[in-house]
């Protein structure tokens, strides 16, 4: 998509910004293309993220999406997914950052058979980098992008709300959708189902969908 179409002015500016020595990290080309909707996918490091975000902001991109994936069960990590896009020609970039979980996995133990063909393993196979960064310890906090994108304010608060991921440098990291006194992060996979809060003694409720280990 990005290569085929005529590069827009924004894309050219972004390219110039990125060529100025920014570390994009390993490319995940398996996720790129018309079937996924992403033009470029990269696994970036936490250190490079704020500068990359600045480059996207200066090139005239907007922060389309920020969300988190709870991959603790099989991979022992959380993953933040950032999507940048521009209003001119479609050029959707997907960057992700892996984080160490702030809370240990408390759900059922990972099944080895499933772990092998699970999303995390299969997606890891998609990376173009030959050497996976296995040994490096994962960072526990992500830097806040509010300085570059005010849109990140609410998006980061929502991720904090739902996953408990902390963002360093966020001006007011508090609950967004849930009540201020909530003490749970409901989109974590070991949270169980929605009704787990209503009936605390019952444990993670299991429905036809499979509940906690879904």
């Amino acid at each position: 998509m990005a290569e085929g179409a005529v590069a827009s002015e924004h894309a050219q500016r972004l390219r110039a910004e990125l060529e100025a020595g920014l570390d994009l990290g390993p490319r995940w080309s398996a996720l790129e293309g018309a079937s996924s909707g992403f033009a470029r996918c990269h696994a970036v490091s936490v250190e490079a993220l704020p500068r990359l975000a600045g480059a996207f902001a200066r090139a005239g991109y907007f922060l389309e999406l920020l969300t988190c994936l709870d991959l603790r069960q099989h991979e022992g990590r959380m993953r933040l997914v950032y999507t940048f896009n521009c209003f001119a020609a479609l050029d959707r970039w997907r960057l992700h950052v892996d984080l160490a979980p702030t809370r240990p996995w408390s759900g059922p133990a990972a099944k080895p058979a499933r772990a092998k063909k699970g999303a995390a393993a299969a997606l890891d196979a998609a990376t173009d980098a030959a050497a996976a960064p296995a040994a490096a310890p994962l960072p526990v906090e992500a830097p806040s992008l509010v300085a570059s994108f005010p849109a990140a304010d609410w998006l980061e608060r929502e991720v904090f709300d739902m996953f408990g991921v902390r963002f360093a440098g966020h001006p007011q990291l508090k609950r967004l959708l849930l009540p201020e006194d909530a003490d749970f992060h409901p989109l974590l996979k070991d949270f169980g189902r929605m009704d787990a809060v209503a009936a605390p003694g019952a444990g993670p409720a299991m429905g036809p969908g499979g509940g906690a280990d879904g």
Binding site: L31, G37, L65, A119, A122
Partner: peptide
């Protein structure tokens, strides 16, 4: 299949996107 997809449409209020991450299961 295992994979990720972002699909966006123009709703009456703007850019509505659906980001689906599939781990190959039914959920």
């Amino acid at each position: 299949e295992v994979g990720e997809s972002y699909f966006a449409v123009e709703s009456a209020r703007g850019h509505f996107g659906i980001y689906i991450v599939s781990d190959g299961s039914e959920l």
